[in-house]
Design a protein around this nucleic acid. Sequence first.
DNA 1: TATGAATGAGTCTTCATTCAT
DNA 2: AATGAATGAAGACTCATTCAT
Lengths: 216, 216, 216, 216
Amino acid sequence: MSKKPASRKRPNSWESADLRQEQHEAKRRLILKQAAVLFADRGFHETTIDQIADALHVSKPTIYYYIDSKEELLYDIAHTGLADLNVALSRDQNAALPAIDRLAQFFTMYGRLILSEFGVCLALISDRSLNPQSRRRLRSLKKQFEITVRTILDEGRQDGTICVDDPKMFTFAIFGAFNWAPQWFSNKGPSSTDQVIAAMFEVFRKVASQKSPRGD
Amino acid sequence: MSKKPASRKRPNSWESADLRQEQHEAKRRLILKQAAVLFADRGFHETTIDQIADALHVSKPTIYYYIDSKEELLYDIAHTGLADLNVALSRDQNAALPAIDRLAQFFTMYGRLILSEFGVCLALISDRSLNPQSRRRLRSLKKQFEITVRTILDEGRQDGTICVDDPKMFTFAIFGAFNWAPQWFSNKGPSSTDQVIAAMFEVFRKVASQKSPRGD
Amino acid sequence: MSKKPASRKRPNSWESADLRQEQHEAKRRLILKQAAVLFADRGFHETTIDQIADALHVSKPTIYYYIDSKEELLYDIAHTGLADLNVALSRDQNAALPAIDRLAQFFTMYGRLILSEFGVCLALISDRSLNPQSRRRLRSLKKQFEITVRTILDEGRQDGTICVDDPKMFTFAIFGAFNWAPQWFSNKGPSSTDQVIAAMFEVFRKVASQKSPRGD
Amino acid sequence: MSKKPASRKRPNSWESADLRQEQHEAKRRLILKQAAVLFADRGFHETTIDQIADALHVSKPTIYYYIDSKEELLYDIAHTGLADLNVALSRDQNAALPAIDRLAQFFTMYGRLILSEFGVCLALISDRSLNPQSRRRLRSLKKQFEITVRTILDEGRQDGTICVDDPKMFTFAIFGAFNWAPQWFSNKGPSSTDQVIAAMFEVFRKVASQKSPRGD
DNA sequence: TATGAATGAGTCTTCATTCAT
DNA sequence: AATGAATGAAGACTCATTCAT
């Protein structure tokens, strides 16, 4: 996890220590962000630590002062993205809303993540480059989101706002559709991120919000 | 494209020449297949030519006797997959069928490709490792399938069997859902490939085959 | 041209930066020199980067820290030799001298170059291993020396100190004689480099410094 | 030295055996010639056996039917060139001629060799690629020519037709000048091979055919 | 004789990572 | 906190050469 400046050397005061700590974190985040951008743009293996360092106008060992390995970089990016989404979720999700709206809200946030620098790494970069443990952790986090969605789907059946025949496959489908978005979405295009996210959700809202077509 | 045994000078017999040619192609295909399996399993960069050679019980230069570079391997796998799909498509597509059925048929075949060794490479491996020209060719082939689907969607609107509000986004969604399938599908699971493909299509059939939910 | 320590950000002091820069150049020159010795001794293709590294007691990537490719090594050796000669030439050539003496002076310096580590590469190693551009540059530099000699020959005709019937062929001959010297000269022999150079020039002085034999 | 068709298999008759033998030799010579051309053009290491085979429209193993190794190819080319020169020399050298004319004659023949495919290999390709034995043999053959020239020089001193101050250096010079010729001579230029050879010799004739300039 | 196929033994080059300062 | 220098480990690709037919 790389060395943290454990109040090494003349800790003048708490404040300065805090500042230092903050700065350290800030710089670390900067590295993650730049790395995420490059990974998303060129791929994990196609990006060298040197390129990340160059983009930040620092030297390679400086990167290593903040992170322990390239793998950690990827893991931290993915983990940060997922964690951020969790924070946003627990902050904004309003349990009082109908399930279909909560689903919409979920995928709005998920879409924003997936189309952000950090999220793109989640969708675009295979976790194969990670060690088994990291991979397992990440997958369990992702699984969590699947469960969240499945839960909303269940609740939607109960509150009558959602009706899908095959919740499992629906979940795979909607996640697939969103995860694949970075492959074709470019924010240089005419539609904003949020517009695209909304449009994409509408496709699935149609499925979710009514009776089976053949049930007529 | 690597040297082909151009049946130079005094071919003992047409048969033997053909046989040789056939064997050559057969072996080449074997290499592509094995490479595809390994690429799909471990990733492009995580697979070495040595591993491919080992898996086939031949030496590394033997691989290079049939292919020119690792990149060509990836390109040919993708291209072969796409070409095979095109062949299957033009063989089986029955223009007399209602559009919705043709859509189902298309995605049945597309799903089979995407879940085959060759197709998995299409969905899982970034084309970043390809040179610009190869990448362009592949993308144009893929684009073709999008156009095919968009056309079917249009025709469905006319014959009344398909109704989607946002054909573009619908297309992105369904391709995304299928392209993402290799990420979670394992043929060691209980469902067969075809079952999964069918189930996945049902999700989208529901969207496609009825009036907009809010149109009531 | 390989990364140069571009004295990025907060250089502790000009002195140290300069020192570093100097050391870097010094080490680079050491690599060129060692490579030149080995190239001259065993040939370009018969010398591996590993051997150069071994001879310098460093690891292979260290070589690559200072140079970009084996080809650049060869180019830089040749270029350095040629550049050094140019420097020596513009420093020492005394335009007031009679042409024949300037010719002698030129080939003294040329001989020293051609029998030095760097020059031997010029004469012994084919520029075929170079890319077209580098080859062109080098050839143009060499051509320059030919022109210099042709000019001296012309001036010699005017100041009466040189008389050759066929300046073009004379130029080819004298350059050939000197360029071929590394093939037989060994500084383990009894004669010093300068003695050999002088002796070789005497052969051509005889041609140059009198009327055509058949002109009697 | 590679297998000779030791009248293997049904030696129908002497004639056919001879024919076969002749054909074998003829084909072998063809290979040597083509290899020489390519070596001279691109260099020894830059030429692959495949390229030689391709140029002859045969397969690689066919080359190996006639020669044992790439090294042998180079050795045989050089050796053949040298041997041919020897044959020409002993055929044409007229001991009755004045030494200066015999020298001219020698370098006419030497020049023709050095500018032929075979000779170019002698001058252009380093013998470093040869094993010590082959190298020694070749060098001893070359040495022989030096001795021949030195002998002619001596005889010239006696018959009064040649006068050089430093026979050793003169010999190095003239051989150098000729050996270097392939570096600049192109038979696409305006002058014929023989014209160039003659012109080059004239430069040295001037040195050789008169008293020391400073001896006046 | 001739060839398609196969291979052992390299060689250049890259890159994540560390060391010394 | 930051960097120039150094390196171990690996991987793509080549090529002379051989085998089996």
